[in-house]
């Protein structure tokens, strides 16, 4: 028999909504990074205005998921999916917020003396976008390998972020008048680094969704932290 129950159709709709939300977030990151590089204030304002839609989608998806949890008592993979869906949609919403933060940097920098964005910042923009795409592909395909790849790539982003910090501090130490621009670029780099963190979080949810194993916070316990 190949009938799909009403409940599983609703689950599928949640997935479709999540993908639509993810599409908006991907576009928002893309536009925000472009606006920063092109010093395009109109584009930046578009990103800020567009975030409202992402926020509303988060509410809509959460409401749907709660209704399904309350009425359908899902178990096993359905339960893991719905629990992951709530978390993924919250991560997506925060990615959208990071795009808004980036757009804010554009608005400030565009009114200042032009500065070439550091090469590493452009690379970070590329990588953050790519990680966003990949974690969502992993989610759509239930692909654990892809998800683990995203988690690994987050280290590259963290490295780039650190280098930019050093580069900017050095630049600001050399030329005091660039301090404000330097700080803005450090912030931009930090926002992109956060996008990568959220992509990593989504990838971890994918691993949980597929394998039923929680892999975050699996670091070695230290004296200061200790076991639970």
């Amino acid at each position: 028999m190949n009938t799909i129950s009403h409940f599983h159709r609703q689950i599928r709709e949640v997935k479709e909504d999540l993908l639509m939300m993810a599409g908006l977030v991907e576009e928002s990151i893309h536009e925000a990074v472009d606006s920063l590089i092109a010093r395009d204030k109109a584009q930046a304002r578009g990103v800020i205005e567009g975030d409202r839609r992402i926020d509303l989608m988060q509410n809509q998806i959460e409401e749907r998921v709660f209704a399904l949890l309350a009425t359908q008592q899902p178990v096993a993979s359905d339960l893991r999916f719905l629990s992951a869906a709530i978390k993924i949609c919250s991560h997506l919403e925060r990615m959208g917020d990071q795009s808004v933060n980036l757009a804010d940097r554009t608005l400030v920098l565009a009114d200042m003396e032009p500065v070439d964005p550091p090469r590493r910042l452009v690379a970070m923009g590329e990588l953050a976008r790519e990680m966003t795409c990949l974690c969502l592909d992993a989610f759509v395909q239930n692909n654990v390998d892809l998800a683990k790849n995203v988690i690994k790539r987050d280290d590259e982003l963290d490295d780039l972020n650190l280098h930019i910090l050093e580069e900017m501090v050095e630049w600001m130490t050399r030329e005091q008048r660039v301090t404000r621009r330097g700080v803005e670029l450090i912030l931009a780099s930090r926002h992109l680094e956060r996008v990568g963190d959220e992509a990593t979080n989504i990838a971890e949810e994918v691993v949980f969704l597929v394998e039923g194993e929680i892999i975050r916070h699996k670091g070695v316990a230290t004296d200061s932290v200790g076991p639970l």
Binding site: V75, A76, S77, L79, R80, E211, G212, E213
Partner: peptide
């Protein structure tokens, strides 16, 4: 069993 069953049939 109700969060991550091992067998497909159970799931």
């Amino acid at each position: 069993i109700f969060t991550r069953p091992k067998k497909d049939q159970t799931e």
